[in-house]
Amino acid sequence: MSKHYTEDHEYAFIDGDIATIGVSNHAQDQLGDVVFVELPEVGKICEKGDEIAVVESVKAASEVYTAVAGEVVEVNSVLEDAPQTVNEGAETVGWFIKIKITNPSDVEGLMDEAAYTAFIAE
């Protein structure tokens, strides 16, 4: 599995032709207590950069964009009843969706884990 991050604090973890999309641990920390996550329907086709979800805390609501194009094959339905899962493990149990990638080169230009760690330290 390879880890990739955007400047908007989304991640795309690639495993074969499946990308797991979510918000970074740093992002959940900034948002504070997550109270709601709006997820797309399975089967949705999206382009790179499309708005794919909305995450809400008490004080903010943010759109989540997908870093890769493809078809949504799974959504994390745990988040519907337990949005706090995002706070408990943003990059593990708190993932948002899984996408079947159409274009593997989409991840080129995204930050790897080390680059992202340096980016948020700025």
Partner: peptide, 9 residues
């Protein structure tokens, strides 16, 4: 649910 509202959103 004030994240729907103008002062936040």
């Amino acid at each position: 649910m004030s994240t729907r509202e103008q002062h936040i959103r």
